[in-house]
Write a protein that binds this DNA or RNA. Structure first.
Lengths: 330, 330
DNA sequence: GGTCAGGGATGCGACAAGCGAATGTCTAGC
DNA sequence: GCTAGACATTCGCTTGTCGCATCCCTGACC
């Protein structure tokens, strides 16, 4: 309310700069009223707005009518002057204009990925290397985006996606059985598998790629009671049903079991970098197609927040940066 | 933004109560957007607004267009859901709605004289009894009006009125020469005059009304160097030019001079109540019309703030309450 | 004091925005 | 596969509102 006391230069009025940022939510009467109040003249305000005087006159008149008939301006021979009612309205009008400008700014920031939020989830081994790297890049490029991260298994993540709690989920599938009807899948990478064996294991000497069938009789350590839906369904695809002797969810714990010689287990390539020295990793030959595919999933039919869109791109870059050796060995 | 989480009862939505207080500044798109966001459905929002679904659909669509084409809602089979852009817009829309409601409330308060401001001025003797009483009544009836009071001589007050610094001025004239073209005059009262003489003065014995001519040869104490434009032009109207021996502006000081026997002076009826005991007041017989007229003046062509309008009424009441004896003795 | 200029109000014609009704399209659920 | 619910779209028409021209009023100037 102090900014409009005396403004000799109409060109610096705040809305001309905002008009390309804010696509004019200003609701006509608001702009007209503020402009007239600023200049104390219908004619000058009309010129400023690029309208005719009669249009301004009628706009003000209908605004006064909508406000119960109380005049907002006294019509004087030399222009107009705010009445008490008009004087009361000014700060509100300016507050509304400022709020709308703020909305425009924030929406523009949203489009430019300089604001808004990103809520995503990822499965554990994606968090070993892929996601941290992508996140670091993303935060550097878009520091003003509020990031919310969750960790979880693929089914749970997809459920959170459906419920609208996540914008994006980094998920994996060993069998390509993701419900593609409900989600859009952005392919990130296909990763090969490793078999983790104790350092002294006979196969560890060769260090070369192995057929999974060679381990058909081994004791297996798995994340689930059955092989279905876990990495071990790769074994099913190669024709044997592994004997699961220990169910261990946590990767660090799994390594401990393997190192102790209690069994062998499968390790996705994304987790291969973080293996303890007394465990040996042997590449598994892909005989039944890629062992595991990693996707960025988004809810189909729901528009992607700009930040999520950008994050998909960054994830793709990060996936491409993963060493060739860690990816599918075809 | 918390109030819209789950609102099963659409009848308590805030705008139905406000719609008669606020004559709908809400700019259509604002109400539509908020209503749709609240209900998560175009159809339900349309029912709430008393419109058809197609109208809501097009309103939202054109709003999205005006915002650069970014969808505000995801259209789902079971209704709609805010996108990130829509989620960002919600608090702004609610802030705007609240601001507009506030404006409506304050304008309504203004009409009901439960808000706004009253800026008035009065000449000194009006401040002796008339204005304080009126002001006390006014503040009791309209406690939320911000009152700004000034004191000054009639010409200065009228100038302030013209400049727009005052809404109302309590002014007086001894000759009816107020520029009625520029002001609207609300007649309050015609007051008679008293002659103040020392308690031991010969005329004080009778205590009855006196002709001013009896004091043609007295020493006079006046507020100005000449009688014109002051109370003493009543003497001019009665045919003599008083000899002014002391120029004293302040009424208390004047009394001191009179009590000391240095001269006599005229006292307007409004100030008669505050006279010291060693000064006697003698009514002056009205021979040339009312001695002094008191008006509430407002600037012509400028609309009166409701508070000023109300104050004129209160001033009229207060003037009518002044004892008959203090008013014109015809 | 008469004329002129500045400024707001208003009548008129026309264009465009926006509403209602009806219809189309898509999805979920049975 | 069919039905129901929900949003999008099309069509016709009402309504709002702009520009243009003109009128009215007031203050200034000659």
């Amino acid at each position: 309310m102090s900014s409009m006391a005396a403004m000799p230069n109409p060109h610096v009025s705040a809305d001309c700069a905002a008009s390309d940022v804010v696509p004019d939510l200003s609701t006509v009467w608001l702009r007209v009223f503020v402009e007239v109040a600023r200049h104390g003249s219908f004619t000058v305000a009309a010129r400023t707005l690029g309208w005719t005087q009669s249009a301004v006159s009628r706009q003000v008149s209908s605004l006064e009518g909508a406000l119960g008939g109380a005049p907002l301006f006294d019509r004087l021979p030399r222009g107009v002057r705010l009445t008490e009612a008009g004087r009361v309205l000014v700060p509100y009008a300016e507050a509304v204009a400022e709020t709308l400008r703020g909305a425009g700014r924030e929406l523009a920031a949203l489009r430019a990925v300089a604001g808004g939020r990103l809520r995503f989830g990822a499965f554990a081994t994606a968090d070993a290397a892929l996601v941290p790297h992508a996140l670091a890049v993303f935060r550097t490029r878009h520091p003003h985006v509020a990031v919310h991260r969750e960790e979880g298994f693929t089914p749970a993540l997809l459920e959170r996606l459906t419920a609208g709690h996540l914008d994006l989920a980094v998920v994996s599938t060993t069998s390509g059985d993701l419900p593609t009807a409900a989600y859009t899948l952005h392919h990130l990478l296909d990763e090969s598998l490793y078999v983790a064996v104790p350092a002294g294991h006979p196969l560890a000497a060769g260090r070369g790629p192995v057929r999974l069938g060679l381990l058909a009789d081994a004791d297996w350590i798995s994340g689930g009671r059955g092989p279905e839906g876990t990495l071990l369904d790769a074994a099913l695809r190669q024709g044997f049903r592994p004997r699961i002797v220990h169910v261990v969810g946590e990767w660090t714990a799994k390594q401990g079991y393997v190192a102790a010689g209690l069994g062998v287990t499968l390790v996705p390539a994304l987790a291969a970098a973080s293996v303890r020295p007394d465990v040996a990793l042997l590449p598994v030959l892909d005989e039944g197609g890629p062992a595991r595919a990693v996707y960025a999933a988004t809810a189909r039919g729901r528009s992607l927040p700009p930040a999520a869109e950008a994050f998909v791109g960054v994830l793709r870059e990060s996936a491409a940066r993963i060493p060739r050796a860690a990816r599918t060995m075809a």
